[in-house]
Amino acid sequence: MIPENLEKSIENLYSTFSQYEISSKIVGCPCCVSDRDKEKIHSKELRDLQEEDLSRYAFKALTTFGNVNDFKHFLPRILELLVDDNLGVSTFVIFGKLEYGSWKNWESEEQEAIKIFLFEWWKYFLERQSYFDKDLFYGIYKLTKNIDKLLQIWKIDITQNNFVVYVDFLKYYYQDFINENDEFKDFNEIDDDKFLKWIKENAKHLEAGFYHYENKDQRFAREISDALYVFEHS
């Protein structure tokens, strides 16, 4: 069940972008977009569109299918489906569409609605998932440049999923971060230092977490031990 604050942020997206009505004809590249693709996005009310209706459009939006106003019309539903991985298109692609559509030049209330949603989504992710999602974390950072907010939300509690995500990050992504591999190379110097400081400060939870789970969940206790080893030897 989606928490109340995330649900409110989604409703705010619908409200904010409601002025962008669907065009009767949305132009698509004839080589890439079929008549059936165009029919699907007109087949239902916006909130009723599902993966099979919207995924093709979401993947092709702006580049070969429709314009910015078309994208703004569908954006609330695209983001809503993306939250629980019900879109069939990756987070990386959709965040790239926002950048391609120059969302930082959109109306201020539109930008704010997106930011509120993104941080509520990050909070929701930390509460329910057991792995670190690099595309989501880095994608939100890249769009907002607000590492402080991301880390403020990611408050570590060894009894909660946010700790599991932290352990997974250390085990599988910490070396990439300190070596500035992949997307992590694009962190600015100040935010890089803030993130590293946060990682080190929260490493104190690893030992306590290991003893907490040693007899309750031996598999996870081993994961914690592996994460501690990576942290201490990187």
Rank of each mutant, 00 (worst) to 15 (best):
D53G: 01
I147D: 08
K194H: 10
I26Q: 06
L228K: 15
F231W: 02
I199D: 08
E201K: 15
G28N: 06
E99N: 15
L54S: 06
E45F: 03
E11H: 11
N67T: 14
K185S: 14
N162Y: 06
D133C: 13
F117A: 08
K72S: 09
H73D: 06
F92H: 10
S34F: 12
I153N: 06
D35V: 04
L150D: 10
C32E: 12
F132M: 10
E232I: 00
V230G: 01
K72L: 05
A208N: 12
L150S: 01
L13Q: 05
E107F: 01
F117H: 02
Y213T: 01
E45I: 08
S225Y: 14
Y166H: 01
F163V: 02
V89A: 04
L98D: 06
F119D: 05
H42M: 03
K155C: 01
V165A: 06
S108D: 13
K142S: 11
L75A: 11
D226K: 14
H212R: 04
C32I: 14
K142W: 06
E109Y: 02
L6C: 12
D35N: 13
F132V: 05
L170V: 07
F184W: 15
V167A: 03
L49D: 00
D35Q: 06
N5Y: 06
K115N: 06
S24C: 00
E4D: 09
D37Y: 04
A203E: 13
K115V: 10
F169W: 11
P76Q: 14
K72P: 04
L75N: 09
L228R: 10
I190P: 02
E21I: 07
F137C: 07
F71S: 13
E214W: 08
D191I: 11
G209L: 00
A61E: 08
K171S: 14
R219E: 07
F119E: 04
L206T: 09
R56G: 09
F92G: 10
Y174N: 08
I147Y: 05
Q160M: 10
N105L: 08
F125D: 15
